[in-house]
């Protein structure tokens, strides 16, 4: 009745369990710091540790206090608004630029393809601190330091490579004869692109846009360099919050961010499945 093949020796079985428990241990090690935040954010007391009441699962030891705190503190409300505002516009800008770039780069007649791709993807590789310093000096000339526009452009630069990568991936599976078929049916190039190409690469475009949004959403280095007090975002607020007023509000914010991230992951997975369905044409 053993689940192992008959030829397994005792050592084979031991190594099977050894591998299995090591894998679990690694996963646990990775997830614990994140998971532990969630219950702690419901702590009634202003501590970062589990109280006796929490360990006894006493309902009175838990509360939504820190969540209320977030929404009653002007600084946090502004930070949340800023994060969404900058994130959404940076993602939109990155999506448009990245999609157009990917479409152009996928055409066989495009010259200097590798060079241009490398340049466009470089924000993923160049250390953030260098980009931040460069942008700081560059933006001063245009009075963009401490402005929303400056941050949106800066974050769009970081998000564009993600869009290029996801849209390029969507385009590799794209059959060019579909576009030609639309042309021969009488559609002008822009109309053919809008009617036929865009719907088929839409999952790639949207997932690239989501990546760009998330990139902007948890970016802190550029914000530290380029944002004025008016543009503080959630990560920056957490950063200064850690030093100024140490209480579980930060944990509550972190929990909210985890929820947002999970929602994004699920959306991406949903899009991936839908893309597969469109490919197979169901």
């Amino acid at each position: 009745m053993s689940k192992f093949p008959h030829y397994f020796s005792i050592w084979d079985k031991a190594s099977h369990y050894g591998l299995k428990w090591t894998a679990w241990a690694v996963l646990f090690f990775l997830m614990l710091p994140i998971l532990v935040i969630i219950p702690l954010s419901f702590n009634v007391e202003p501590y970062f540790t589990f109280t006796d009441g929490m360990l006894r699962l006493d309902p009175d030891a838990y509360s939504l206090r820190w969540y209320k705190e977030i929404f009653s503190d002007d600084k946090w409300v502004l930070a949340i608004q800023n994060s969404f505002f900058i994130g959404i516009f940076a993602a939109l800008l990155a999506t448009v630029i990245g999609t157009v770039a990917a479409v152009g780069l996928s055409r066989p007649e495009m010259p200097f393809k590798r060079l241009i791709t490398a340049l466009l993807l470089s924000p993923m590789i160049v250390p953030l601190i260098i980009i931040a310093a460069g942008m700081f000096f560059f933006y001063t000339r245009f009075n963009l330091v401490g402005s929303y526009l400056g941050l949106i452009i800066a974050h769009a630069t970081l998000g564009t490579p993600f869009v290029i990568i996801t849209v390029t991936a969507a385009l590799t599976g794209f059959d060019r004869s579909l576009y030609n078929a639309a042309l021969s049916a009488g559609a002008a190039p822009l109309k053919a692109f809008w009617d036929i190409v865009v719907p088929l690469i839409r999952p790639g475009v949207i997932s690239g846009g989501l990546f760009a949004f998330v990139t902007s959403f948890d970016e802190v280095v550029l914000v530290l360099f380029l944002a004025g007090p008016g543009q503080r975002t959630i990560p920056k607020q957490m950063f200064s919050g850690l030093r100024e007023q140490i209480n579980p509000t930060i944990l509550a914010v972190a929990t909210l961010l985890i929820v947002v991230s999970v929602a994004f992951l699920m959306t991406l997975e949903f899009l991936r499945r839908r893309a597969e369905r469109i490919r197979s044409g169901q």
């Binding site: 059959d175 004869s177 579909l178 030609n180 078929a181 639309a182 021969s184 036929i196 719907p199 088929l200 469109i278 490919r279 197979s280 044409g281």
Partner: peptide, 12 residues
């Protein structure tokens, strides 16, 4: 009018 070997029907 053109008929492609891969049919090139719009899948969506």
């Amino acid at each position: 009018g053109m008929v492609f070997q891969s049919y090139a029907l719009f899948p969506h």
